[in-house]
Design a protein around this nucleic acid. Sequence first.
DNA 1: GCGACTTCCATTTTT
DNA 2: TGGAAGTCGC
Length: 760
Amino acid sequence: MGYLDELNESQRVAVEHIYGPSMVIAGAGSGKTRVLTYRIAHMVEQGIDPHNIMALTFTNKAAKEMSERIGKIVGGSEAKSITMGTFHSVFSRILRYNADRIGFPNNFTIYDTQDSKSLIKDIIKEFSLDDKTYKPSGVFGRISSAKNNLISPEAYINNTDIQAEDRMSRRPELGRIYAQYANRCQRAGAMDFDDLLYFTNVLLSTQPEVLHYYQQKFKYILVDEYQDTNYAQYLIVKKLAAAYENLCVVGDDAQSIYSFRGANIENILNFRKDYPDFSLFKLEQNYRSSQNIVDAANSVIKRNQDQIQKSVWTHNGKGNPISIVRTLTDNEEGRVIANKIYDLKQSKVPDYNAFAILYRTNKQSRSFEEALRKLNIPYKIYGGLSFYQRKEIKDVLAYFRLTANPNDEEALKRVINYPKRGIGKTSIENIIISAGSHGVSMWDVIQNLQQYPADITNSTKQKLYEFVTMIRSFQAEMLKVDAYTLAEHITRSTGILRELVEEKEKGPEEVERLQNVEELLAGIQEFVKTSEEEELKTLPDFLLDVSLLTDADQEKTEDRNHVSLMTIHSSKGLEYPHVYIVGMEENLFPSQLSMSSKSDLEEERRLFYVALTRAMETCTLSYTGSRFVWNQSIRCEPSRFLDEIDASFVHHETPMRSQQGRSLMGGMDRSFTGGLNVSLKQPSLPRSLKSLSNLPNSPSQGSDFQDIKVGTNVEHSRFGKGKVTHLDGNGADKKAVIFFPHHGAKTVLLKFANLVVLPD
DNA sequence: GCGACTTCCATTTTT
DNA sequence: TGGAAGTCGC
């Protein structure tokens, strides 16, 4: 068994231990995925039937990768027999077979977050509640965490603690909203993401024979990223594993970063209570990062109090210290990082895949996009608005969903009047009212207006009739033709395709929308082609796949020579030779919302730990003195996390600037008095050196902007060319009113405006 | 019922 | 800033 030789001692022991409960605590970069895949491969080699193995991962991508790697060792068909995927995808499949036992149709649709919020909004309106106290996202969060903790609407309403909390936050109706939300979802035959777990638990607790079946089927269970499981996931796993207790969980408490969505770090700690005779394996040797990076990350994470003791170490070379870069503005931050990547690529790095820019929030990507584009550096943004959340895609998918499950109200609301067919807001509201009073779905109402009368004009009734007929015609085809044929038919006969083609002339955005829909169709065609033998892949089959897919799963391996931009959250599990962690500022990272509680701050610190440990060779941290937020520039202070890295592992790159630096440094003097900032101890550099610093296109700062007078023609990075009409203030506060032909008059602070003076 | 217009509000991470 | 919701006139 050659593959065992590729493991170190502690990895091998973990791989060879197959029976009974076990927990693998895997430090960052310690070969966790390798252990997991080899363990499964080893099980199969030992004669365990792959049908009896269930492996739960955090992302679809991780599952796919693992499956491929296992296939290489034990063969593809064996690997395919393993049940492998995210909690959500695996359990949604189980529910497909069993949902009818718990009051849902087996063809239930899955509501995404947008659908959920839109439904909640409806309910708030229906109850005539103030939508400022009852904000849809807040209500959604509350319902979500109730479900993650397996609290039913009834339990919610009867729980005195919860009711007290809701009264405290002056939202006593939350329980009623939750109950109505659950009701409406059921009527629509829809489950949201949390329901996939919640109702799996309901299924397993109320249907003993189902539980028994899956206990016998999944005799061996593996769970990856165990630190990020929530209570519902914990209990489901516990139930399924109860018969054989061949349960292996893998995780790293130091990388738990999803408590905001109910992840419960206690699950790791509780493991020893549930399985007192469990075996514990620790993987502590890091193969990924240089010594400096490992040490720096350790020096940060040791400040957390809540953690399992372990010491991550490496045999790798010392490497470079962690670089810390300071810039004046967020735009400059983008340029500096882009230039660094450019330089490194020119001098020693063969391709762009080696680079990743990691940030705390998606919106930070903008300045990096711009800067990379200017230097013609290929890049790809992960996360953010996903392909499947684009309006045009959601519209098309809504037709698919409606075809598969006409009771799906969110889908119905979305397309009942798209493309425009003269069914307006008032009619839709009256349909909802009628549906509510009869306790049926909107679809029931519109296809049977005699039985469920609604206040609707005759001409609208005719249009509704045509709509119903159209959807029914799709349904008639649904199981007869493959997904692509039907999807293509739907985009044509609904008029969506025609509309998009017509609008194409309007501009590049419209062209893109058409391309997106074409891409979706191409994707469905791919999907249909993957079918084996006689199998017909239908539209419902496709929907099952698509609702739980994210952008990361889409990636094609060909176009891979690009810099990766993503949030730290989505970087988990990945690694890059050169990592740039940007926006290292107080209130951004750590996020403002995390500052109030110690546990939230510890989670932010773990997030920082995750970010640092993505890096293999070099790691650069950057922060900026000011940032554009809501159309105005705000001052930023360096993140406390910068101080938390042991000073011997860092190198501060940016020299202090002599003049304007001071006014912008703001709180820096305070936070750096620990003597960490080496450059503070050096004499300030003379201003002439500034031009030698690595700041590309450095704005004309430090001067009194004497070259900018009333009447001067200037160019602004966002507004384009304009003429100065007024000047006000002095020095750092000097402002100008500039008239831009395309944007009108704007007042800008010269020190931030990055104006380029144009010849008269 | 529809489109043009104004106003208001956000601002963390995601299966 | 920019997206979403609300208002108004046709």
